[in-house]
Design a protein around this nucleic acid. Structure first.
Lengths: 206, 206, 206, 206
DNA sequence: CATGAATGAGAGTTCATTCAT
DNA sequence: AATGAATGAACTCTCATTCAT
């Protein structure tokens, strides 16, 4: 079936784009790496641009869903929701560092409006869900009167900061470039713990 | 003198690369925009890659200096230093959004080891200075026993998060894509205030 | 039976080639338009080139036959024969403008010797039949001593000239690009009348 | 200077396109034949399509001018004008058989609206000039009341008919494929004589 | 010191064709 | 008998770079 090969191309493309960037990667590179014919990418996806869109679409579902579920759960108070959001978000990002990189690379580029807008849509969606949790918490006086939007930026920004470059992250944490933080379970625990601690201190009434 | 022309090319290149990315920009585009001959870039800088290095070098000085000065000032306690660092960093980043974009684009790419390493060096340098302030504050019991590295990540990450995309930042803050946050003085104040608030809550003993 | 499908492909191909030219048409275009599988053309005809040959062969019979019949009819004198030839030729060409276009496109190309020769054979055959009528008329002193070959060229050339481009023909006749001369019965009458008039004036003794 | 090389490319392209058609010719073929770099065509002309436009423009001037001059000459009556038009047109077409082929190939294709329209414009211009001469002749009662538009078609069509294919023309005239009619001065005389004869018989009052 | 012309390599894409089913 | 998947070759075009002047 063709889905297997399409998925294989997508998986390989995510790695390649994460390494070399979208513009920096050639279809020939991709074909060689994925061990398929050069014409396959255009055959399956129509164009290099549409391959990118397919990647985003392929992975977007994975990024959605869980956050809304958490936000909608009536059994949880806002602090519990924030804790779950943090755990969930860190988990997701660390499990797909390459895809995360691609999204951010594209976000940093002003060109290609359509794709840019698609990606923004994904981010804005996630961001708003978290913002609403915070606003709800403020309304209920569980949280202090913080800046909701920028609080989301702090939460996500912390994670993104360590995802910028494996080498840099490794150096900052261990002073050792070859350390692999993204696959180290201790790092995940440490990151979650830190973000929770920052958010608690920031959000909770003294 | 040729320095003026070189600077002009560098300035134009920063804008162009921020818009279209390094790979997405052609030397012809750049030459047209800067109103110089196509051969000038190679003539002055040797190659497109070396132009990038020149950009980084050119601006790196600007990013350095002030932080060390703050850190070394014996008249300030660690909290005051952190406040100044935050103000200074926000100021710098917002005054050069294009250059900031380029650095982060390059950082997100694993390729081009030399350049990657150069950029990492700049970041690590800045990061370490801030980390040392925090560690000093902890030692002096002014600050709580936080995770110094990740605290720096939170501080810088918050700023970077809003710098990712003008359009996204505008949407998140105002729900309006055409709002220009980077040049809005109110936004700067708001951002500094927020980061200080987060850092204070996080760092200070209850 | 497969003949129906082959004919369907041929008919569709004639339209397509007339519009976009042989080289400008892709087998995929053709397959989509004819609503058959991409592999069908090669399956039925062996190759794109052989499809062209099949088209020519398929239609060649239609172009032959009638002229010989007219030429061989002992009950007609040469002037009557010329009149019938004119009527018959105009009729045929106007009824198959697309096929006529394809033949002339190919004729204008020096390449593809085999195909070129095939088409030339069809033309030369028709031409010679008409030339013989004229030569016979001259011999019988019904016609003046004209240049037989070039007289045929004038007759056929007049028709071909208006068949070159529907848009141009329409403009020349009506100053209106959207007029459809090839399907207008009045135009056929007008064309036949004109050619007869030219030929009569040219061929007949004063 | 660059004009020499541009002209060289144009000249080579005219030959190539006449042989293989526009779509059938590749830029690589052209570059090899003209002994220039593959990138030169795009460098000089922007694209393959624009090269075609450049060819048309380059030669269009050559096709214009003389006809208008003849038509406007007050010293000539309409019959003399027609004679000169015939001589002039045959002369021009025979001197540039390849370019003539290209124009007609393109005219036979329905696609590429812009180019089609450009070529139609050239033709319509020439055609109208001749038509006006005929209409003037009719008005002055020098000519019979013929169909002006189709009379032009007969004149031009006769020439075009022999220009369709060198091989076919040679066969029709001499029964010998290798005869080179376009460069044979006797053929030119013969063609002019024939067309004049046809036009005189057709146009003049008995 | 500066430039317009020129180049070879490689980009994305399309093509006619083949092959396993 | 018929097809969707797959392919390698070739296409136009753009690129960073070089070179003669």
């Amino acid at each position: 079936m063709s889905t297997a090969k399409k998925d294989h191309i997508i998986t390989t493309a995510i790695e390649l784009f994460a390494e070399k960037g979208f513009e920096g990667s050639s279809i020939r590179d991709l074909a060689t790496r994925a061990d398929v014919n050069v014409a396959m990418v255009n055959y399956y996806f129509g164009s290099k641009d549409k391959l990118f869109e397919a990647i985003v679409e392929h992975k977007a579902a994975f990024m959605r869903g869980k956050l809304d579920e958490i936000a909608a759960n009536p059994k949880l108070d806002e602090l519990e929701k924030m804790n779950l959001v943090i755990e969930n978000y860190v988990e997701k990002v660390l499990s797909q560092p390459s895809f995360h990189k691609i999204l951010y690379q594209e976000l940093l580029r002003a060109e290609r409006q359509t794709m840019h807008d698609n990606i923004i849509r994904i981010f804005v969606k996630n961001t708003q869900t978290v913002r609403e949790i915070i606003e709800q918490g403020i309304k209920k006086k569980i949280f202090r009167k913080v800046d909701p939007q920028l609080t989301v930026a702090s939460m996500m920004g912390t994670i993104n900061q360590v995802m910028l470059s494996k080498a840099m992250c490794a150096m900052l944490l261990e002073g050792n470039k070859s350390f692999s933080p993204y696959t180290d379970p201790a790092f995940k625990t440490r990151l979650i713990k830190h973000i929770k601690q920052v958010m608690h201190a920031h959000l909770l009434q003294k």
